[in-house]
Each structure stands twice: as structure tokens, then as C-alpha cells.
């Protein structure tokens, strides 16, 4: 554990709390992609199956359980409690375009041909693109509530902080995980456009609006 990873994880936690806060206080999941949230549940469940087989630390176990539970709770909020505020007609990204390639990539790039490793690898690739339906929705509507942009910024910061974490681990432990690093770089790259608008508009007190 190093400060980059620790603050990355904290940022990830913060993003989830911001999202739950947004949905419950506005009593609406408007502007949030159900598909992205469903992908995160898939990511966490497939990756953290090792909860039952390998123990890393109490921190690791508690975080894994939290991520699975909170992501399921968000789906519940969107699908049941605030269902009328969820508009599927603008959440139109085709999931098969994401899931299919991730299955193929996991079969090619993995650390072992067994169910746990294949699912782990699949979850890493899927996480790297899981935000796309959300970003696509943002692009389509051309605007977002400020709270939603804070959610995305915290999520992007979590990914960005994992990069110095890998650099640090390479020098301090000689540890390199090429699958995580490659997928992580792609994932962080997807946020660059968003971050540009977030820094130049939202943090200057303006509304998040994309140029027409």
C-alpha cells in the first residue's frame, strides 16, 4: 500500500458516496447511466470472487464487500426506488460492443487459464470501458448536473491515482502487472475530455455544458 493507491481508493469510495447522495437528495437518477452502473456490478462481482479463495488484508476484504454492496444498492435505487426518474431512452450505448471484446481480450490476455483468473482479467478489461455508456449519455445530452460531474471527477481521480501507484510499485517492489497497467491507462485516457471540461468550466463555477 502506498499513498497513491490509498488516496485512489478513497477517491473511489468518495465517488460512490457522491453518487448515492446525488440520487437520494435529488430523489432522481436523472443523468446517470444505468448501463454503466450495471457494468460496475459485473466488474466487482467477477473480480472479487476471490473473496472466498484468497485473503489479502482486512482493508482489502472490507473494501471489496463495500464495492459489491454499494454498487448493488445503486442498481436498486435506480431500478426500484427511483425508477420513474430513470430514462432508458437516452441510455442507448450497446453493451454487447463492450462485453464481447472484453471476453475475447480476457481469453487472450490473462494470468492463468482457470475461471478465477479469466474472470479477473475480464473484470479488468470491462472496468476500463464501463464508463463509456455514462460518457456517451453525457455527450448526447450535452450537459450534466454539477453533482454528477463531481461523481465522475472522483471516479476519474481514482483511476488517475493508480498510475503513480504502479510507477511507485515498479521502483519499490519491482512489481508490474501489465494487464492492469494497460487497461488502467486506457481507462484513465477516457476521462481526459471530461476532465478538460470539468477543470475549465465546473471548477470555475460554470455549468457543465458541452459545445454544440
Amino acid at each position: 500500500m502506498n499513498i497513491f493507491r490509498f488516496f485512489g481508493d478513497l477517491s473511489h469510495l468518495a465517488s460512490i458516496f457522491i453518487l448515492i447522495h446525488k440520487i437520494t437528495t435529488t430523489r432522481s437518477c436523472r443523468g446517470i447511466s444505468f448501463k454503466t452502473q450495471a457494468l460496475y456490478v459485473t466488474v466487482f462481482v467477477t473480480r472479487y470472487l476471490d473473496l472466498f479463495t484468497s485473503y489479502v488484508s482486512l482493508y482489502n476484504t472490507v473494501m471489496k464487500i463495500f464495492f459489491i454492496a454499494s454498487s448493488c444498492y445503486i442498481l436498486y435505487l435506480m431500478r426500484v426506488r427511483y425508477r420513474p426518474t430513470n430514462d432508458p431512452s437516452i441510455d442507448t450505448f450497446r453493451l454487447e460492443y463492450l462485453v464481447g471484446p472484453c471476453v475475447v481480450l480476457a481469453l487472450i490476455f490473462n494470468y492463468g487459464y482457470n475461471p478465477t483468473e479469466l474472470l479477473w482479467s475480464f473484470s479488468i478489461f470491462l472496468e476500463s470501458v464501463a464508463i463509456l455508456p455514462q460518457l456517451f449519455m453525457l455527450q448526447r445530452t450535452g450537459e450534466a448536473e454539477t453533482i454528477t460531474t463531481h461523481y465522475l471527477a472522483a471516479l476519474g481521480a481514482y483511476r488517475a491515482l493508480y498510475i503513480p501507484n504502479w510507477i511507485y510499485r515498479y521502483f519499490s517492489e519491482g512489481y508490474v502487472d501489465p494487464i492492469s497497467v494497460t487497461a488502467g491507462l486506457v481507462q484513465t485516457g477516457l476521462y481526459l475530455d471530461f476532465f478538460y471540461v470539468y477543470f475549465t468550466k465546473v471548477l470555475q463555477g460554470q455549468k457543465f455544458e458541452l459545445p454544440a
Binding site: 473511489h12 489479502v56 488484508s57 482489502n60 493508480y162 492492469s180
Partner: peptide
């Protein structure tokens, strides 16, 4: 044989 990478990250 063993995993070249031990998954300790979240």
C-alpha cells in the same frame, strides 16, 4: 506454476 501476479489491488 503459479500466478505471476498476486492480485492485491482493488
Amino acid at each position: 506454476e503459479g500466478n505471476p501476479v498476486h492480485h492485491d489491488e482493488l
